[in-house]
Design a protein around this nucleic acid. Structure first.
Lengths: 238, 238
DNA sequence: CGTGCATTTGATAGCTATCAAAGAAGGTGG
DNA sequence: CCACCTTCTTTGATAGCTATCAAATGCACG
């Protein structure tokens, strides 16, 4: 609260921040006594919670440039784990916010990022709420394409840093189901794969349909009528 | 961006904010051209997305005093619907943040709330990622108890403003499955119900076990050994 | 007191988890 | 550079859980 506000923000931040390195599969160790803000300077991570029954749930994946909020939750085993070589800087949330008190731009940027993280988490909730495994996988691939996809001719190439197990733990599926869905998408010529991590998305529209993001083609008139009725439904009136 | 910063915050806010009322089942109409911030002065709401296949996914429930961020997502039908009589004030997010530029406390409060919403959304993702219907229902009831529960002797009483269908759409379950799980919890004497909305939580610990929040009792030595091994696992070393 | 809607209960089919085993992929040491 | 070995991934068979379909019951409202 009463840190010297006289010096400039960067110097105050470098004083309270802690630099961390981690290699594939290793935890980025955080001070678990308070909420932490982590700025991922380089690499990819997963935020994972260990459930009491021994299973894991992946809450989010992060990539270079992302800000990660790791709340202090007593009783929860919450870990930030590197998916490849990572460099990060961590701050206690409260101390960081105290230091940024006089910098509205910093606070605003952080708020924007927090709202973006909220959107991504809600999207994940939508994925998980839909029961079909195929929809979850297709949606996941499209989301990854947006974040780390690289145009490759008419395809989009993705180099997935996470394992099938991580994907399963993120989508609420088993590793076997994930693998089966990949196989099915490959047989449908929507994707191609090479090795464990390389994926080419060949048919974005087809994937969007399978992800349930857009209605299937060839809508018949009856469905249109239903849509029109919905537009005038009572919930829109008041 | 260039609003007069000379007048005080409240007057500037009241100028750009819009007051809304809605009754049970009706949408709280928002300007869909930009992100909106909604402050729920009174009542309960659900944030629901209409999926292309016609199904609904409830992203979150909100109660008196909550701040809701409703992002502008082209192609998504995102609605804020009243579960009972509601009063709310809505702002375009950007304009609100511009107005709050010189008020670090306001920004900080909003950031804290956004991070809280993120935590809740992540908890929902955990619920949805676990497949068992019973765990989702038990966890949902405990979450509602924390937010709107009222002590009633040794029980906690909850007056649920949402229907079984809303609960199902929130947890990724059908209305029938929700009902069956309620029946099962009632038969196990963990809860009691009256009418459609009243629920008494009779055994918080039992519910926590069923929700998978705590390990089941009577842990045998072998499991303890496994836990100890995990504490020294390679992921903790680096 | 009746009517409409939400909820509850029942029977069955479909999907995914689980169990089991074979087949790549990538890294290591010779 | 190649053989080996560990780990991850893929494939197959079965059981269990939940969605779906169908119908009865109960609740709230006029």
């Amino acid at each position: 609260m009463s840190r010297s506000q006289s010096r400039d923000l960067p110097s105050r931040l470098s004083e309270m921040g802690e630099f961390r390195r981690a290699t594939r599969g290793h935890e980025i160790v955080l001070d678990s006594r308070t909420d932490q803000l982590v700025f991922l300077a380089d690499g990819a991570t997963k935020l994972v919670v260990q459930l009491p029954d021994g299973s894991e749930q992946v809450l989010a994946f992060h990539f270079t440039g992302d800000m990660v909020h790791v709340p202090h939750r007593p009783g929860d085993r919450l870990q930030l784990v590197a998916l490849d070589d990572c460099r990060a800087i961590t701050f206690p949330t409260n101390a960081f916010l105290d230091a940024a008190e006089g910098e509205p731009e910093v606070l605003r940027t952080m708020l924007t990022r927090a709202l973006l993280a909220l959107q991504r988490s809600r999207n994940k909730a939508i994925r998980l709420g839909r029961k079909a495994a195929q929809e979850r996988i297709a949606d996941f691939l499209l989301a990854m394409a947006e974040r780390i996809g690289i145009p490759d001719g008419t395809d989009i190439r993705i180099d997935l840093p996470m394992s099938r197990r991580d994907i399963g733990n993120s989508l609420g599926l088993t590793i076997e189901t994930v693998s089966r869905q990949f196989t099915e998408l490959r047989d449908s010529h929507m994707i191609a794969t090479s090795g464990r991590s390389l994926v080419w998305l060949h048919d974005l529209e087809g994937l969007a349909v399978r992800a349930g993001q857009v209605a299937a083609q060839k809508v018949d008139p009856e469905n249109c009528a239903i849509s029109n009725k919905d537009l005038a439904s009572p919930t829109m009136v008041g």
